[in-house]
Structures are given as C-alpha cells and as structure tokens.
Amino acid sequence: MSIHLNPYLSFRGNAHEAMEFYHSVFGGNLILNRYDSIPGVMGDGDEGSKIMHGQLDTPNGLTLMGADMPDSMADAPDVSVGGSSVCIWGDDDEQLRAYWTALSEGAEIHMPFEKAPWGDTFGDLRDRFGVNWMLSLSDGSAE
C-alpha cells in the first residue's frame, strides 16, 4: 500500500504550455488529456482544446499535476493568486541548481538561490506562469 501527496496546479488556458515547460525542467513522462478527450465531463464545447488533466511523473519520484479551469469555474482561484508554493528540497546540488536555473527563466525572483542564514542554500521565485517555487539545498549538517 502507498499514499502520495503532490501539487495540483490550476491554470487559465495555459496549462498545456506550463506543463510542457515543467516537463522540460524536470524531465520524465508527461500525459495531457484535453476536455474533448472525455466529452461531457467539464468545460463547454469551445473549451475542448484546454487541458482537463495533466500529469508529470519524473524519474526521481516527483509528480506534478495541473489543468485549465473551465469557464464555468471563473470565480475559482488559480495559480496566479499565489496563495501557496511548491517546495523542492534535497541534497543533490547539481540537480537542484539545474531546476533553479530552468525555473528562473522569465521568473520574478523573491529570494536568490544562495546560502541562507540557517545554513541551507535556499531560493524563492514566482515563475512565468504565476507558480511560486521554493528550492532548498540541504547543507548536510542535519544528517
């Protein structure tokens, strides 16, 4: 038996572009299902090309899901509201720095990826799709 927890990001018409970008950053297997792949589930007829469900599973065990909010859910919050962050942490210096570099493209940097007062290397940014990311590279002293 197993249980998993992963972010599910809500977009306003750019989920395909965002999920493809995250695929380029993290690698792995990306599955994108459009609203017109399962007629009548959600979304109006003119929303068929929007992403109903996207899932990215990476080689190192990360899972990121996302979808376009249908017009019928116009009042529901999406990633642009910025009420939460996706956090990636670990001790793989090369991989975390590569993620930071890729996510930084077109991003608003809130805190550069550098040594933090608590010893780890930490950075905080809002990517070009409005998703807040925090990356933390362990200094190894807690091991």
Rank of each mutant, 00 (worst) to 15 (best):
C87G: 04
S72D: 08
V81H: 13
G140N: 09
R12S: 09
D139N: 15
V25G: 06
G82M: 07
Y99D: 11
S2G: 00
N29F: 01
A102G: 02
F129N: 03
D93S: 14
N14G: 00
D71T: 08
S104Y: 07
V79G: 02
H23W: 10
H16P: 00
D91N: 14
M42V: 08
D127R: 02
S2Y: 13
D139L: 02
H53R: 14
G83W: 06
S10K: 13
Q95V: 12
R12C: 01
D68C: 13
H16C: 09
S49G: 05
G119R: 08
F26V: 11
M134Q: 14
E47L: 07
F21G: 03
R126F: 02
G123V: 04
R12H: 01
H23V: 02
L62P: 02
L32D: 09
D78C: 11
G140I: 04
S10Q: 14
A107E: 07
L5T: 15
M69H: 10
L103E: 12
I109A: 08
F11K: 13
N29Y: 03
Y22G: 11
E108K: 14
S49Q: 12
W133F: 09
E17A: 15
L137E: 03
I38P: 01
V25R: 10
S80R: 14
H16V: 00
I109C: 02
S80W: 02
F11M: 10
D46L: 00
V25P: 07
V79T: 07
D93I: 09
E105W: 04
A76F: 13
I38H: 10
P59L: 01
D71A: 15
G43N: 09
D92P: 08
V41G: 00
A15I: 10
K115Y: 05
N33D: 11
T101F: 01
L137D: 03
G13Q: 07
M111E: 11
D139T: 02
L96N: 01
I109Y: 09
E114H: 00
G130S: 10
W133T: 03
